[in-house]
Amino acid sequence: MQSSAEGRFPKITQKELDALRQRIGVKIGVTAEPWCYEATRDNIRHYAHGIGDDNPLWCAPEYAAKTKYGDLIALPSFLFATSRIVSGYVGGLPGIHAMWSGADWTWHKVVRRNDEISTEAWLKDIVEHQTRFAGRAIQQIYHVDFFNRQGDRVAEADSWCFRTERDHAREQGSKYSEVKARPPRRYSRDELDKAYQLYAEERIRGAVPRHWEEVSEGEALPTMLKGPMTVTGFIAYAQGWGGLYIRANKLAWKQIYAHPGLGIENRFGIPDCPERVHWEEEFALEVGAPGAYDYGPERCSWLTHHLTNWMGDDGFLRRASCKIRRHNPAGDLLFIDGKVTRKFVEDGRHLVEIEQEARNQDGELSILGSGLVELPSRG
């Protein structure tokens, strides 16, 4: 796909969209090896630390040995590191920007230390939208199943990316016009100290069981802070998650040689990966974003972190959903809140439904989420 005469970047064509539709329902072969094949002690810890999660159930073997699991287990969102597809590695429409925008997860079993994970994936659906961010947008929905070495399905997920025309988003997109017009934010020490108090007060439920009977509908979960957003923080996540297109030297050349539409020239004229929207302010602005911004799977993982802190070691996260509503550029703070909306018993399981939302320092909605948590019962 070549750039159009009117802009630097390619446009979505009907021919390529029709070709992409032919892939629906077709199992995807090995497109790129995952960042993590196995849930090793280090891989689990690196992912947890990449989202700012220091829960000893995933990070401290001496602690985990005393739990019912007898060893470390992986945090639920660790599975993002075992599949490029669920993390946003989309096919088709070369040169069209991809933004990871949400997922629906279901977990069936915990992932234990040293479990080897394999996956099966396919394109599930394509949906066209009109958006304020970039006008016409194509939503690509993928399904991924996750299996352990014994062949047990430990989880499944639908995730989706929105494909957008970069020139349209930059020149005509209206979603971030007010944000871009604001002067750069600079926080006072008092403002930061007030936010950081949430870190000081953050509690991991841990070994103290949260019984189903003690939970009430309408009950609020503690507010969780994430941020302030920095490029350093985005890179910390990429270290644990692996990124989609981050490659060096010969491997970078091989990737761009195999996928010419992937490489986008930087200021030196060197084709570089589109993932640099997360650390390169100038390029982020070129694609219509308000600045270098966080990763989508990172933000989904923050929501599940909010839930696992609350449920404790004896809880099990059955389902979680997230829908991204706006970017979190460097400089933003994010406040995650949740509320119990329903508690019920189904097939002998004591379940709690939780609704979540996260807003930035200006009260703007960043993400919507939900979770279904199984809790132990006193009975």
Rank of each mutant, 00 (worst) to 15 (best):
Q239N: 13
G233V: 10
E201W: 04
I235R: 12
Q22P: 03
S321K: 13
G52E: 07
S77M: 13
R325C: 10
I12W: 10
K66A: 03
I367F: 06
A248F: 14
A169K: 11
Y237G: 09
V179R: 15
W35A: 03
D193I: 09
R318M: 06
H168Q: 10
E120M: 03
E16L: 02
A39N: 02
W253Q: 15
S377F: 07
Y47F: 03
A39C: 05
G135T: 13
D272N: 14
R299Y: 11
D54Y: 13
L285T: 08
Y37T: 08
H97G: 11
V340I: 12
S377K: 10
L285Q: 08
W100V: 04
L372F: 08
G70M: 12
R182E: 15
W241K: 08
K27G: 06
A32Y: 03
V90I: 06
Y187Q: 14
D294N: 14
V287E: 02
S83M: 01
D294F: 13
A220N: 09
R8I: 14
D53Q: 11
I324G: 03
F316I: 02
C322M: 07
G242H: 02
E62K: 12
T67Y: 01
T106V: 03
N328F: 00
N148S: 01
G242Q: 00
W241A: 15
W302L: 11
W212V: 04
A248I: 10
R41M: 00
E202C: 11
T341P: 04
P76L: 02
T232W: 10
P274H: 05
R112V: 03
Y142E: 03
W35I: 00
A5L: 10
Q172D: 08
P61W: 02
K15G: 11
T13S: 15
R210K: 10
I44N: 00
R186V: 05
H211Y: 15
V144T: 11
Y257F: 14
W100C: 05
E280A: 01
D125F: 01
K250R: 15
P222Y: 01
S377Q: 03
E202Y: 09
R21P: 11
Y293W: 14
Q2I: 11
A64T: 02
I264M: 04
L75K: 01
K124D: 08
G206K: 04
E353D: 15
E6K: 01
P329T: 00
M1V: 02
R45H: 00
P184L: 09
A60T: 09
L307R: 09
C36R: 00
N148E: 01
N43W: 00
W160T: 07
W212H: 06
I270R: 05
H97A: 14
W302T: 06
A195L: 10
I367P: 04
I126E: 04
G296F: 12
L20Y: 05
C59A: 02
L251E: 15
W302E: 05
K323S: 09
V208E: 15
E202N: 13
W35L: 02
G50T: 05
A200I: 07
T31S: 10
S188G: 11
H306P: 08
R185F: 07
E364R: 14
H97D: 14
K11H: 13
P209K: 04
T232F: 14
K15D: 15
P76W: 01
N360C: 10
E16M: 03
I256E: 10
A292H: 01
